[in-house]
Amino acid sequence: MALLTLNQINKSFNGQNAVSDLNLSIEPGAFVALLGPSGCGKSTTLRMLAGFEKVSSGSIFHGDRCLSNATTHVAPENRDFGMVFQSYALWPHMSVMENIAYPLTIKRVDRATKQKRIQEALAIVQLEPYADRSPAELSGGQRQRVALARSLVTEPEVILLDEPLANLDRHLRATMEETFRTFHKRTGATMVYVTHDQSEAMSLADQIAVLKNGQLIQWASPQSLYQQPRTAWLADFIGRGSVIRMQPSDELQPGRKVEQSLIHQQLILPHIPSQGVDVLIRPQSVCLHPSLGISAKVTQCIYRGGHFDVELSLPSGQTLLAYHDTPLAVGETLFATVQEGWSLEPDHV
């Protein structure tokens, strides 16, 4: 199994930059998510990996094989990848079995091997009784599983997934996530998964590449992304928390853990500093107490099923988010202590 690398990828459409200076190195067998809001370039990147788009500059390598650069371009039919499309793309004039069999038919695999692989694929997605049905007779989730089975039947090294759960309802999504996890363990293929849903990315991926406006913001594991995001925008995009602006000082540099003492010093200041460093404080780090800590006033208390989201107003006017088990009255004054924070870089894009 080979390393999949994207080197200095740039892609522009009609002068507009869709992807700029993207560098990624994907380990064989990893489950990688490309995460970002609409228009961030994640689908474009996936399509360049698949071969449906050419790169404007830079190169894509699979091991030693150059798949795409400014002068050469390997067509999708010759890359030996698998792909699951957002609309499933099941051929309506073929049965489930014929859909799954098609990649093997094209490769002229002998009948015995073909039958074996198809049965294995159907078994993995648990659709054996549906082999002779037509796609029109299947539900959304079942169609998704057929598309999955089709993508693995040639035992590719890399499987690309383009927002595969976007068209399914919430409950079904949870079940399908489990299917993907099992699928990944069973096949050991490298999976590149495009999504705009951060909880999906966090629960499935080993590594996440967050993109915004065509640029890579951060390439890290889900835990790192959650606890140590690089920029203020990312802190806002992933998970929930408060971004507090603090006065700059020698101890307060971007990209570092911020201790409780420094945080408390800053939180009691009466004004928002005009220039400063943004610090992320996750609600899990905030403790509420009737008498100990920094004085804050409750501005909102919303029930989230299991706990309450409490928004507190600090002396400087900035908002601090905390969790609480019992409801609190709006206007009530409380005291908050913050365990730790993470300092953020300013947004460039």
């Binding site: 071969g51 098609y102 990649p103 094209i106 040639t154």
Partner: peptide, 9 residues
């Protein structure tokens, strides 16, 4: 595109 990925000319 799905057919392309499957290897069809």
């Amino acid at each position: 595109e799905a057919a392309q990925i499957a290897g069809a000319t």
